[in-house]
Design a protein around this nucleic acid. Structure first.
Lengths: 229, 229
DNA sequence: GAGTGGTCTAGACCACGCC
DNA sequence: GCGTGGTCTAGACCACTCG
């Protein structure tokens, strides 16, 4: 009936959306579907595996494949890198270092980053501009135990994001998105009124189970993160 | 060397993180890697395909596979369904319908949902509670041209989310996340001060290229969306 | 125990995209 | 052209898990 795993996937999805296979129902086994579609089982497997990854199906050995009762859906957002985000809009990117210091981590940071008492951190505040309009406020803390090179690195020309990617290109990250109210500093840097609601993204980067860096990114007023699925 | 596609994937990722294959470099071809690992090409292919899906590799026919220069990373967030979100925290879920009416769509909605002049919509305002504390404010508009059943449906007992999932279980969705300031109504419903920064999620649901429903979900103050990768 | 999905193999053909 | 990844096939063995 169908040649490619995409055709099979689309056909199965069609049967589900048209109600032939309602939520909760059991689908035929892979071997049976392979006969139906006159395809190899591996092909049917790929189609069903992807449907399961997308949260449409629930698969278990022996019990078979069922249509999820409430289709567990998830959205994927690209992790923004300021320069790329700005330039993708055809706007001119500019970066500025606002503040830079080496200090002992304050108590809240010790807790948040799981650092030992007295740990030293490099603290940076940076601004990213799009066509000279404030785009993103970056408040970053770098663990100097793990990245002693950060003590002397110069972040005046380029932001710490690129520098960090060169040091630890792949790592485990925990992201949380929330809303925050502009305090005096944020209002001044992002050119908005105090109290304005702003979208904040906090990223905790781990490497080998130890926290490398914590960053708070606050976007300009009105910013949206958008995606489709 | 390695038996499973997971082993191969882990080994390749290891070579990348250890710097053996730096960003931008060209990896050996699948056939060559298959020999190296003493595995079938399909197995190597699965490993590399997944690495590409995760944004680590960039693959092109003829040119081969390269380590991405700036590893394009993306985060996946589960789409929250209020009841499940609340009950997953071990809290008691309660739902309330605040307002319900059938009306002509206002101009901004005509534009946002791409509706024809004079289109009728069902407008609902609902509240979702966790242990009787306000959790989520739902402001929903349903296109009555596409879903005439929504004109007479009763949303007093159960929220429109479940009802809609039964009508159009699978559809294309556009999601955008932003920060908003609590107006008088939101402040009253979510039990917070006016002007409080709140996390807002807007979802536009399409079916067959026409807009079915627009919903604005505003979480209680302090809410965070979190994920790892 | 037996049925189902999870995975691997060896081989094949094809489509894309540099040269 | 021709090398690379994209995919399909037919067969096989295994692991999980339900009854």
């Amino acid at each position: 009936m169908a040649g490619t795993f995409r055709d099979i996937k689309a056909d199965i999805l069609g049967k589900i959306t048209r109600g032939e296979w309602p939520p909760g129902s059991l689908l035929p086994a892979e071997t049976e579907l392979a006969e139906t579609y006159a395809a190899a089982r591996a092909t049917v497997n790929r189609a069903m595996r992807e449907l399961a990854e997308e949260g449409i199906l629930e698969r278990k050995r022996k019990s078979g494949s069922r249509v999820r009762l409430s289709p567990l859906r998830q959205a994927r957002f690209d992790i923004p890198i300021a320069r790329q985000e700005v330039e993708a809009q055809g706007r001119r990117y500019r970066y500025a270092l606002v503040r830079s210091e080496v200090a002992s981590a304050p108590d809240w940071l010790l807790a948040r980053m799981a650092l030992p008492q007295g740990a030293q951190v490099r603290h940076l505040i940076c601004l990213h501009f799009a066509d000279d309009l404030p785009w993103l406020h970056e408040d970053r803390w770098i663990n100097l135990d793990l990245l002693p090179q950060a003590r002397t690195a110069d972040f005046r020309a380029a932001g710490p994001t690129e520098w960090l990617m060169a040091q630890i290109p792949f790592s485990a990250v925990e992201i949380s998105i929330s809303a925050t109210s502009a305090d005096t500093g944020l209002a001044a840097h992002l050119d908005c009124a105090e109290g304005t609601a702003l979208l904040q993204m906090e990223r905790l980067t781990r490497w080998d189970d130890r926290t490398v860096t914590l960053v708070r990114l606050v976007h300009h007023a009105g910013h949206r993160m958008t995606t489709r699925y």
